[in-house]
């Protein structure tokens, strides 16, 4: 989750401890003309080409006066874009008031865009869950289940099958704008995992750099459930279950687990089927529609007809 904002500190570094309380960014525009009604000093102040050009047209004395007014408001920081030359009065005032002053070579609009994305992520609600996160066919699958149900084994098998590891055991989930939930490992050493019977392994060393991702958007939630606790509510797969994660509703599948069954293969197929549904192929519904047509026309498959199927379908 690193966004290159190419910020360079010019002056006022003593004020870097100032707390930023809002993810919003503003261009002070009218405040530079001395109009401070509805001015939001708590936001990051961005000076673009227009602001800087306006300021250079003023006398040095006027500039000094404006900066005194502006910087007396305990701003979190000021950013001058496009690598523009910074008026010396601004640098002086930033030093005096200990207001951090940055320069970036990015254009104003793209800087503001990236800064907002970054800040909303930082400010968004987050949560740590006991789960694993794997990218399966491009979909981030959050694997939930009680301790000892086999989350790590399932993750390991998925990685062995060419899918990508994101996190084992503890996942930090972050809610960001655009209704997305992003997950990353809660552990400082991100790509290690613990597998019962083997111990701690390093996924990158064993499976290569392409087998890991630092973070991934959660697209689906998969619960591994003990065989005898599994509630068979949706056997035909006609209904789509949902799981609420940080107030986002995500598709949810539940996989019953018992020795000898491979939850990894089930998870792979469930993910593929979900991708197919998103492309408009809902197998269970298509099957049901065909069945309803058949029921309506009462054309039962005769015993003879299904002899031809014999080698394809195993009843």
């Amino acid at each position: 989750m690193q966004y290159e904002l190419s910020l360079r500190l010019i002056s006022g570094g003593e004020g870097l401890e100032r707390e930023l309380t809002t993810p919003q960014v503003t261009r002070p525009g009218l405040a530079l003309a001395g109009y401070f009604k509805h001015f939001s000093p708590e936001r990051i102040q961005v000076l673009g080409q227009q602001e800087v050009t306006y300021l250079t047209d003023l006398t040095s004395e006027r500039r000094r006066h404006i900066f005194e007014q502006l910087l007396s408001q305990q701003l979190p920081c000021i950013v001058v874009t496009r690598g523009q030359e910074i008026p010396p009065e601004l640098i002086e005032e930033s030093r005096r008031t200990q207001t951090p002053l940055f320069s970036t070579r990015m254009a104003t609009a793209s800087f503001i865009g990236r800064a907002i994305v970054f800040l909303e992520e930082e400010f968004g609600p987050s949560e740590v869950v006991h789960a694993n996160l794997v990218e399966v066919y491009g979909v981030g699958v959050l694997i939930l289940g009680k301790s000892g149900i086999g989350k790590s084994e399932c993750t390991l098998e998925l990685v062995k099958r060419g899918h990508r590891f994101v996190a084992d055991d503890s996942v930090i989930l972050k809610h960001i704008t655009g209704h997305r939930v992003i997950g990353t490992s809660a552990h400082p050493l991100k790509h290690y995992m613990e597998v019962r019977g083997i111990g701690i392994i390093d996924v990158v060393t064993l499976f290569g750099v392409t087998s890991v991702r630092s973070h991934k958007r959660v697209g689906m939630v998969c619960s591994l459930e003990a065989w005898d606790e599994y509630q068979e509510d949706n056997r035909a797969g006609l209904d789509e279950e949902e799981f609420e994660l940080l107030s986002e509703k995500l598709p949810h599948i539940r996989i019953p687990v018992r020795p000898g069954r491979s939850p990894a293969v089930m998870l792979e197929v469930a993910t593929t089927d979900w991708l197919a549904r998103r492309m408009g192929h809902f197998a269970a519904r298509e099957f049901n529609e065909a069945l309803l047509r058949q029921i309506e026309s009462q054309q039962h498959l005769s015993a003879k007809e299904f002899e031809d199927w014999d080698d394809q379908v195993d009843f």
Binding site: E232, N234, R235, A236, L238, A284, F287, N288, L291, L292, I295, E296
Partner: peptide
Amino acid sequence: ERGLHLHVAGLVSKRAA
């Protein structure tokens, strides 16, 4: 109403199992 369609089949099989 609509006969033994997939949803009902799911309920039958769950109970039978």
